[in-house]
Design a protein around this nucleic acid. Structure first.
Lengths: 147, 147
DNA sequence: TTAGGAGCTAGAGTCAGCTCTAGGTCAAGC
DNA sequence: GCTTGACCTAGAGCTGACTCTAGCTCCTAA
Protein backbone atom coordinates (compact mmCIF):
# COMPACT_ATOMS: atom_id res chain seq x y z
CA UNK A 1 0.00 0.00 0.00
CA UNK A 2 1.31 3.43 -0.98
CA UNK A 3 2.13 5.93 1.73
CA UNK A 4 -0.16 8.90 2.04
CA UNK A 5 1.31 12.36 2.37
CA UNK A 6 -1.63 14.79 2.55
CA UNK A 7 -4.53 14.66 4.96
CA UNK A 8 -5.27 15.05 8.62
CA UNK A 9 -3.50 13.48 11.58
CA UNK A 10 -5.43 11.60 14.23
CA UNK A 11 -5.07 14.56 16.60
CA UNK A 12 -6.56 16.97 14.08
CA UNK A 13 -9.43 14.60 13.38
CA UNK A 14 -10.05 14.26 17.10
CA UNK A 15 -10.24 18.05 17.39
CA UNK A 16 -12.66 18.36 14.48
CA UNK A 17 -14.99 15.47 15.23
CA UNK A 18 -15.03 15.76 18.99
CA UNK A 19 -14.10 12.08 19.23
CA UNK A 20 -11.05 11.21 21.32
CA UNK A 21 -7.85 9.89 19.75
CA UNK A 22 -8.53 6.68 21.66
CA UNK A 23 -12.03 6.42 20.24
CA UNK A 24 -10.77 6.93 16.69
CA UNK A 25 -8.31 4.06 17.01
CA UNK A 26 -10.96 1.99 18.73
CA UNK A 27 -13.43 2.59 15.87
CA UNK A 28 -10.83 1.51 13.35
CA UNK A 29 -10.06 -1.68 15.27
CA UNK A 30 -13.76 -2.43 15.51
CA UNK A 31 -14.33 -2.09 11.78
CA UNK A 32 -16.51 0.98 12.14
CA UNK A 33 -14.64 2.89 9.44
CA UNK A 34 -15.82 2.17 5.92
CA UNK A 35 -12.47 2.76 4.23
CA UNK A 36 -8.93 1.77 5.21
CA UNK A 37 -7.21 4.74 6.78
CA UNK A 38 -4.07 5.81 4.91
CA UNK A 39 -0.70 5.61 6.61
CA UNK A 40 2.22 7.99 6.45
CA UNK A 41 5.83 7.05 6.89
CA UNK A 42 6.23 5.59 10.36
CA UNK A 43 2.76 4.08 10.32
CA UNK A 44 0.91 7.22 11.35
CA UNK A 45 -2.72 7.50 10.33
CA UNK A 46 -3.68 10.01 7.65
CA UNK A 47 -7.38 10.80 7.29
CA UNK A 48 -8.83 11.88 3.92
CA UNK A 49 -11.86 14.05 3.17
CA UNK A 50 -13.85 10.87 2.57
CA UNK A 51 -12.85 9.53 5.98
CA UNK A 52 -13.99 12.77 7.58
CA UNK A 53 -17.36 12.52 5.84
CA UNK A 54 -17.76 8.97 7.00
CA UNK A 55 -16.88 9.95 10.56
CA UNK A 56 -19.56 12.62 10.41
CA UNK A 57 -22.07 9.96 9.43
CA UNK A 58 -20.81 7.71 12.23
CA UNK A 59 -21.11 10.38 14.89
CA UNK A 60 -24.64 11.16 13.74
CA UNK A 61 -25.61 7.51 13.92
CA UNK A 62 -23.93 7.07 17.32
CA UNK A 63 -25.47 10.26 18.69
CA UNK A 64 -28.86 8.92 17.73
CA UNK A 65 -28.25 5.66 19.53
CA UNK A 66 -27.19 3.24 16.80
CA UNK A 67 -25.07 0.53 18.46
CA UNK A 68 -21.55 0.00 17.14
CA UNK A 69 -22.30 -3.49 15.75
CA UNK A 70 -25.02 -2.01 13.53
CA UNK A 71 -22.75 0.80 12.36
CA UNK A 72 -20.19 -1.88 11.53
CA UNK A 73 -22.82 -3.71 9.49
CA UNK A 74 -23.53 -0.52 7.56
CA UNK A 75 -19.81 0.09 7.08
CA UNK A 76 -19.45 -3.46 5.74
CA UNK A 77 -22.16 -2.77 3.16
CA UNK A 78 -20.50 0.46 2.08
CA UNK A 79 -17.14 -1.29 1.88
CA UNK A 80 -18.61 -3.98 -0.36
CA UNK A 81 -19.46 -1.26 -2.87
CA UNK A 82 -22.40 -0.74 -5.21
CA UNK A 83 -25.18 -3.31 -5.45
CA UNK A 84 -26.49 -3.48 -1.90
CA UNK A 85 -28.22 -0.11 -1.72
CA UNK A 86 -31.54 -1.69 -0.75
CA UNK A 87 -29.91 -3.18 2.31
CA UNK A 88 -28.35 0.11 3.31
CA UNK A 89 -31.65 1.85 2.81
CA UNK A 90 -33.46 -0.75 4.92
CA UNK A 91 -30.92 -0.31 7.71
CA UNK A 92 -31.22 3.46 7.61
CA UNK A 93 -35.02 3.34 7.49
CA UNK A 94 -35.13 1.08 10.50
CA UNK A 95 -32.90 3.42 12.43
CA UNK A 96 -34.97 6.38 11.28
CA UNK A 97 -38.04 4.74 12.81
CA UNK A 98 -36.17 4.10 16.03
CA UNK A 99 -35.08 7.71 16.26
CA UNK A 100 -38.66 8.84 15.66
CA UNK A 101 -39.70 6.51 18.48
CA UNK A 102 -37.00 7.88 20.77
CA UNK A 103 -38.12 11.44 20.11
CA UNK A 104 -41.71 10.51 20.80
CA UNK A 105 -40.77 8.77 24.07
CA UNK A 106 -38.66 11.72 25.18
CA UNK A 107 -41.46 14.11 24.34
CA UNK A 108 -43.82 12.08 26.51
CA UNK A 109 -41.29 12.17 29.35
CA UNK A 110 -40.89 15.90 28.88
CA UNK A 111 -44.64 16.35 29.28
CA UNK A 112 -44.58 14.52 32.60
CA UNK A 113 -41.52 16.42 33.81
CA UNK A 114 -42.95 19.76 32.73
CA UNK A 115 -46.18 19.07 34.55
CA UNK A 116 -44.22 18.25 37.71
CA UNK A 117 -42.25 21.47 37.28
CA UNK A 118 -45.59 23.27 36.96
CA UNK A 119 -46.91 21.70 40.16
CA UNK A 120 -43.82 22.79 42.12
CA UNK A 121 -43.94 26.29 40.63
CA UNK A 122 -47.58 26.68 41.67
CA UNK A 123 -46.90 25.45 45.19
CA UNK A 124 -43.97 27.78 45.60
CA UNK A 125 -45.79 30.74 44.07
CA UNK A 126 -48.72 30.24 46.46
CA UNK A 127 -46.46 29.57 49.41
CA UNK A 128 -48.39 26.38 50.13
CA UNK A 129 -46.84 23.09 51.05
CA UNK A 130 -47.09 20.16 48.72
CA UNK A 131 -49.83 17.90 50.00
CA UNK A 132 -48.76 14.99 47.91
CA UNK A 133 -45.57 13.46 49.24
CA UNK A 134 -43.99 13.16 45.82
CA UNK A 135 -45.60 16.39 44.61
CA UNK A 136 -46.43 14.42 41.52
CA UNK A 137 -49.18 15.71 39.33
CA UNK A 138 -49.76 12.12 38.26
CA UNK A 139 -50.40 11.41 41.93
CA UNK A 140 -52.86 14.23 42.38
CA UNK A 141 -54.57 13.30 39.15
CA UNK A 142 -54.89 9.72 40.35
CA UNK A 143 -56.43 11.09 43.57
CA UNK A 144 -58.92 13.32 41.79
CA UNK A 145 -59.97 10.40 39.61
CA UNK A 146 -61.25 8.60 42.63
CA UNK A 147 -65.00 8.72 43.29
CA UNK B 1 -41.73 -1.64 62.11
CA UNK B 2 -45.21 -3.09 61.61
CA UNK B 3 -45.73 -5.76 59.02
CA UNK B 4 -47.70 -4.78 55.96
CA UNK B 5 -50.47 -7.01 54.74
CA UNK B 6 -52.02 -5.29 51.70
CA UNK B 7 -50.17 -4.13 48.61
CA UNK B 8 -48.33 -5.55 45.64
CA UNK B 9 -45.58 -8.16 45.61
CA UNK B 10 -42.33 -7.49 43.84
CA UNK B 11 -43.40 -9.75 40.99
CA UNK B 12 -46.61 -7.83 40.46
CA UNK B 13 -44.76 -4.52 40.53
CA UNK B 14 -42.29 -5.87 37.99
CA UNK B 15 -45.18 -6.82 35.70
CA UNK B 16 -46.81 -3.41 36.01
CA UNK B 17 -43.76 -1.18 35.74
CA UNK B 18 -41.83 -3.18 33.17
CA UNK B 19 -38.82 -3.14 35.50
CA UNK B 20 -37.30 -6.50 36.36
CA UNK B 21 -37.49 -7.96 39.85
CA UNK B 22 -33.70 -7.59 39.95
CA UNK B 23 -33.90 -3.93 39.00
CA UNK B 24 -36.49 -3.24 41.70
CA UNK B 25 -34.26 -4.72 44.40
CA UNK B 26 -31.28 -2.93 42.91
CA UNK B 27 -33.11 0.43 43.01
CA UNK B 28 -33.99 -0.10 46.63
CA UNK B 29 -30.39 -0.95 47.55
CA UNK B 30 -29.21 2.12 45.69
CA UNK B 31 -31.54 4.46 47.58
CA UNK B 32 -33.57 5.28 44.48
CA UNK B 33 -36.88 4.68 46.25
CA UNK B 34 -38.15 7.68 48.18
CA UNK B 35 -39.99 5.69 50.84
CA UNK B 36 -39.04 2.56 52.72
CA UNK B 37 -40.79 -0.40 51.15
CA UNK B 38 -43.06 -2.27 53.56
CA UNK B 39 -42.35 -5.84 54.49
CA UNK B 40 -44.71 -8.74 54.99
CA UNK B 41 -44.12 -11.69 57.25
CA UNK B 42 -40.97 -13.43 56.11
CA UNK B 43 -39.40 -10.21 54.92
CA UNK B 44 -41.14 -10.04 51.57
CA UNK B 45 -41.55 -6.62 50.01
CA UNK B 46 -44.99 -5.07 49.83
CA UNK B 47 -45.40 -2.05 47.56
CA UNK B 48 -48.02 0.62 48.28
CA UNK B 49 -49.86 2.94 45.89
CA UNK B 50 -47.36 5.68 46.82
CA UNK B 51 -44.45 3.40 45.95
CA UNK B 52 -46.03 2.72 42.58
CA UNK B 53 -46.42 6.43 41.90
CA UNK B 54 -42.82 7.03 42.81
CA UNK B 55 -41.71 4.19 40.56
CA UNK B 56 -43.65 5.79 37.72
CA UNK B 57 -41.75 9.02 38.33
CA UNK B 58 -38.47 7.07 38.46
CA UNK B 59 -39.07 5.25 35.19
CA UNK B 60 -39.93 8.54 33.52
CA UNK B 61 -36.74 10.15 34.79
CA UNK B 62 -34.64 7.11 33.83
CA UNK B 63 -36.25 6.85 30.41
CA UNK B 64 -35.32 10.45 29.79
CA UNK B 65 -31.71 9.81 30.73
CA UNK B 66 -31.43 10.98 34.32
CA UNK B 67 -28.53 9.06 35.92
CA UNK B 68 -29.29 7.00 39.02
CA UNK B 69 -27.17 9.22 41.33
CA UNK B 70 -29.31 12.22 40.41
CA UNK B 71 -32.52 10.29 40.94
CA UNK B 72 -31.13 9.30 44.34
CA UNK B 73 -30.50 12.97 45.11
CA UNK B 74 -34.08 13.76 44.22
CA UNK B 75 -35.32 10.82 46.31
CA UNK B 76 -33.25 12.12 49.24
CA UNK B 77 -34.94 15.52 48.98
CA UNK B 78 -38.39 13.94 48.87
CA UNK B 79 -37.48 11.73 51.84
CA UNK B 80 -36.41 14.78 53.83
CA UNK B 81 -39.96 16.11 53.47
CA UNK B 82 -41.35 19.61 53.03
CA UNK B 83 -39.04 22.61 52.97
CA UNK B 84 -36.73 21.87 50.07
CA UNK B 85 -39.15 22.37 47.20
CA UNK B 86 -36.89 24.94 45.54
CA UNK B 87 -34.12 22.38 45.32
CA UNK B 88 -36.43 19.77 43.84
CA UNK B 89 -37.73 22.30 41.36
CA UNK B 90 -34.18 23.29 40.37
CA UNK B 91 -33.26 19.66 39.83
CA UNK B 92 -36.35 19.05 37.72
CA UNK B 93 -35.86 22.22 35.70
CA UNK B 94 -32.28 21.28 34.93
CA UNK B 95 -33.37 17.87 33.74
CA UNK B 96 -36.15 19.44 31.73
CA UNK B 97 -33.56 21.52 29.88
CA UNK B 98 -31.44 18.46 29.26
CA UNK B 99 -34.38 16.56 27.82
CA UNK B 100 -35.18 19.50 25.55
CA UNK B 101 -31.54 19.43 24.42
CA UNK B 102 -31.70 15.71 23.79
CA UNK B 103 -34.83 16.09 21.69
CA UNK B 104 -33.21 18.86 19.69
CA UNK B 105 -30.07 16.79 19.11
CA UNK B 106 -32.10 13.77 18.06
CA UNK B 107 -34.16 15.90 15.71
CA UNK B 108 -30.97 17.15 14.08
CA UNK B 109 -29.75 13.57 13.69
CA UNK B 110 -33.10 12.59 12.25
CA UNK B 111 -32.78 15.31 9.62
CA UNK B 112 -29.40 13.94 8.53
CA UNK B 113 -30.65 10.36 8.51
CA UNK B 114 -33.80 11.28 6.62
CA UNK B 115 -31.81 13.11 3.99
CA UNK B 116 -29.60 10.04 3.54
CA UNK B 117 -32.71 7.89 3.25
CA UNK B 118 -33.93 10.31 0.60
CA UNK B 119 -30.68 10.06 -1.34
CA UNK B 120 -30.84 6.27 -1.40
CA UNK B 121 -34.52 6.30 -2.36
CA UNK B 122 -33.79 8.60 -5.30
CA UNK B 123 -30.89 6.49 -6.48
CA UNK B 124 -32.93 3.31 -6.28
CA UNK B 125 -35.98 4.87 -7.92
CA UNK B 126 -33.86 6.09 -10.83
CA UNK B 127 -31.92 2.85 -11.04
CA UNK B 128 -28.67 4.82 -10.93
CA UNK B 129 -25.67 3.86 -8.91
CA UNK B 130 -24.55 6.02 -6.06
CA UNK B 131 -21.64 8.09 -7.26
CA UNK B 132 -20.58 9.05 -3.80
CA UNK B 133 -19.00 6.13 -1.99
CA UNK B 134 -20.87 6.83 1.23
CA UNK B 135 -23.97 7.95 -0.67
CA UNK B 136 -24.06 10.80 1.78
CA UNK B 137 -25.94 13.89 0.81
CA UNK B 138 -23.50 15.85 2.94
CA UNK B 139 -20.76 14.42 0.73
CA UNK B 140 -22.39 15.40 -2.52
CA UNK B 141 -23.12 18.84 -1.13
CA UNK B 142 -19.49 19.23 -0.19
CA UNK B 143 -18.58 18.26 -3.75
CA UNK B 144 -20.95 20.73 -5.35
CA UNK B 145 -19.60 23.46 -3.12
CA UNK B 146 -16.20 23.14 -4.77
CA UNK B 147 -15.31 25.76 -7.42
C1' DT C 1 22.18 15.50 20.87
C1' DT C 2 18.79 15.48 23.45
C1' DA C 3 14.22 16.70 25.21
C1' DG C 4 9.45 17.03 24.10
C1' DG C 5 5.50 15.94 21.80
C1' DA C 6 2.67 13.27 18.82
C1' DG C 7 1.93 8.99 17.27
C1' DC C 8 2.04 3.60 17.35
C1' DT C 9 0.27 -1.39 19.27
C1' DA C 10 -1.63 -4.72 22.43
C1' DG C 11 -4.07 -5.32 26.01
C1' DA C 12 -5.97 -4.05 30.59
C1' DG C 13 -9.20 -1.06 33.17
C1' DT C 14 -13.42 1.71 33.95
C1' DC C 15 -18.18 3.03 34.39
C1' DA C 16 -23.22 2.74 34.42
C1' DG C 17 -26.83 0.02 34.88
C1' DC C 18 -28.35 -3.71 35.42
C1' DT C 19 -28.45 -9.19 35.68
C1' DC C 20 -27.39 -13.47 37.51
C1' DT C 21 -25.91 -16.98 41.04
C1' DA C 22 -25.64 -19.38 45.31
C1' DG C 23 -27.70 -20.69 49.04
C1' DG C 24 -31.38 -19.86 51.77
C1' DT C 25 -36.83 -19.06 53.72
C1' DC C 26 -41.62 -19.69 53.42
C1' DA C 27 -46.53 -20.90 52.04
C1' DA C 28 -49.59 -23.63 49.24
C1' DG C 29 -51.00 -27.69 47.07
C1' DC C 30 -50.60 -32.81 46.18
C1' DG D 1 -43.93 -35.21 54.04
C1' DC D 2 -42.55 -33.30 49.75
C1' DT D 3 -42.36 -30.41 45.83
C1' DT D 4 -42.91 -26.11 43.64
C1' DG D 5 -42.58 -21.44 43.05
C1' DA D 6 -42.05 -16.89 44.61
C1' DC D 7 -39.34 -14.48 47.37
C1' DC D 8 -34.93 -13.22 50.32
C1' DT D 9 -29.58 -11.47 50.76
C1' DA D 10 -24.85 -10.79 49.43
C1' DG D 11 -22.04 -10.52 46.09
C1' DA D 12 -20.14 -11.68 41.48
C1' DG D 13 -20.67 -11.11 36.46
C1' DC D 14 -22.03 -8.96 32.19
C1' DT D 15 -22.47 -5.47 28.29
C1' DG D 16 -21.38 -1.51 25.61
C1' DA D 17 -18.47 1.98 24.68
C1' DC D 18 -14.93 3.74 25.47
C1' DT D 19 -10.32 5.09 28.12
C1' DC D 20 -5.94 4.33 29.82
C1' DT D 21 -1.20 2.16 30.29
C1' DA D 22 3.25 0.41 29.06
C1' DG D 23 6.68 0.45 26.19
C1' DC D 24 7.94 1.70 21.89
C1' DT D 25 9.07 4.98 17.31
C1' DC D 26 9.64 9.12 14.93
C1' DC D 27 10.20 14.14 14.07
C1' DT D 28 11.42 18.77 15.34
C1' DA D 29 13.53 22.49 17.63
C1' DA D 30 16.88 24.31 20.90
Amino acid sequence: MAEVTSGLSIGQVADRTGLSVHALRFYEREGILAFPIGRALGGRRVYSEQDMEWLTVCTTLRASGMPLPVIRQYADLVRQGAGNEEERLALLRQHQQQVIGQIRALTDCLDVISSKVGVYEDHLAQGTECLDATASSAGSEAMSNRP
